[in-house]
Amino acid sequence: MSASLLAQVLANGLLLGGLYAAVAAGFSLVWGVLNVVNMLHGSAIVLGSYAAWFASARFGVNPFLSAIVVGPAIGLLGWAVQRFVIQRVITAPVLITLVLTFALDLILNNGMINAFSADYRKVPPVTGAILTFGPIGLPLDRVLAAVAGVVVTLAVHAYLNNSRLGRAIVAVRMDRETSMLMGVKVEHIYAVTFGLGLALAGIAGCLMAVVFPISPLNSSGYLGIAFVACVLGGLGSIVGAIVGGIVLGVVESFGAIFVGPEYSVTVAAVLLIAMLLLRPQGLLGRAGYE
């Protein structure tokens, strides 16, 4: 394998990883704070992609701009789903909330298949430009999408650490009962966190739409990416989602070269199993949410 090919594959992986960070961050946040494995996450990303497609086809607005509206809108939907549905079983064992979000996922996914059909749709290129660095060529759209993915994820991280409500979210994750002693209304934090998680999913969906064709069939793949990145980086950690997403992107990119792109899901799954067996606390060494 030549050095230039190596560099190209690495660059592709990093760009993929930036998107994966955004795909995983909201999922990780919800798992860490609510102890809910949100099976709805993948379909919420696809919903974001469709919204971006709609904005592009109908109004000619590119996904980078429509994300500004789509993210909060899907976030609001998430807030309501948590507040009025999931909250009712939030104290039940994690299996119950998993089944509940799985059922919600089936409803949303089935709705999207009926509304949009399972056919693939594509948003036209935003810039269409190719950046070249010596032998490496990178589509500018992909670079912008990856950078946006990481920037949005870091912005959420900064918000969690530097705002009153953000600190309360972190506090609930650390110690629910003690946060109640601070006057935090836990059910309010849960709804806000779930909303934030789905807003991130919606934005990730817009960014994915820049790069990949859109279909409801993508949702389980996105959920898988979120799962693996989350386990790689450590549950509930936003920085962990970035690290996990990038590692997964790079591994997948090399996997596509060495074992073939048709095995990318297998490569990700093997990575997941290896992590669980060898380093269940994640690459950063932070313990997950028990």
Binding site: N161, A171, T178, M182, G183
Partner: peptide, 25 residues
């Protein structure tokens, strides 16, 4: 205000962030 048994400070947060959490309400 209730200072719980075992102190239950928020791990991973700084002293100042812990104090700020006290003023949440």
């Amino acid at each position: 205000a209730h200072v719980p048994e075992g102190r239950r400070l928020f791990a991973g947060m700084t002293v100042e962030d812990n104090l700020m959490m006290g003023a949440f309400s």
